[in-house]
Simulated scan of single mutants.
Amino acid sequence: MILLAIVACEIGFWVAIVAGLIARYPAGRPKLGAALLIAAPLIDVVLLVLVAADLIGGATASWHHGLAALYIGISVAYGHRMIAWADAKFAQRFRGAEPRPKPTGWAYTVVCWKDAARTLLACAVAGAILGALILVVGAPERTAELLGFFPALGLILGIDVLWAVSYTIWPKKAAQPVASRG
Rank of each mutant, 00 (worst) to 15 (best):
I72C: 04
A132Q: 13
G20T: 09
D160H: 00
G131Q: 07
I43R: 02
A19C: 07
A68D: 07
V7W: 10
I11L: 14
L133G: 10
D87H: 06
T168S: 15
L36E: 06
I6Y: 04
L157N: 02
K172D: 03
L130M: 03
L147T: 13
M1S: 13
Y25F: 12
A132M: 13
L21C: 03
I2C: 08
F13R: 12
W63A: 15
E141N: 05
V111M: 15
G154E: 02
I169W: 06
Q92N: 12
K89P: 06
L135W: 12
I2K: 04
V15D: 04
K31A: 12
A117N: 00
A5K: 12
T60F: 02
A144S: 13
H64K: 13
V111E: 15
D115I: 00
C112M: 14
E145P: 00
Y167M: 10
P101L: 03
T119G: 02
G20E: 03
A152C: 06
L4T: 09
S166F: 08
L121D: 06
I11W: 05
A8H: 14
K114P: 00
L42C: 15
A61N: 02
L153T: 07
V46P: 05
K173H: 04
G73S: 09
A107Q: 09
G57S: 08
R29T: 12
G58T: 03
L120K: 07
L3S: 15
A91K: 01
G148L: 12
V110E: 05
P140C: 11
V165D: 12
L3F: 14
W163D: 15
A35P: 01
A86G: 06
A39L: 12
A8G: 14
A107M: 04
A139I: 05
V178F: 00
R142N: 05
L36W: 01
I156H: 01
G182H: 10
D160R: 04
Q92K: 08
F13N: 11
T104H: 08
L3E: 14
A107E: 09
G58C: 06
A116C: 06
A117H: 00
V110L: 13
S62H: 02
A40V: 09
L130H: 01
Y167S: 08
L153G: 07
V137Y: 04
A59H: 09
A144L: 11
G28P: 05
F90C: 11
R95E: 07
A84R: 11
A77D: 10
W85N: 11
A40W: 03
G131M: 05
L36S: 08
W63G: 15
I159W: 05
K114R: 08
F13L: 13
G28I: 05
L3N: 15
F13A: 11
L36P: 05
R81G: 08
A61T: 02
W106K: 14
I56G: 13
P30G: 02
D54Y: 01
K172Q: 11
V76T: 08
Q92S: 10
D115F: 00
E98I: 10
V18G: 07
H80C: 13
D87E: 09
I22F: 04
S75G: 15
P140A: 11
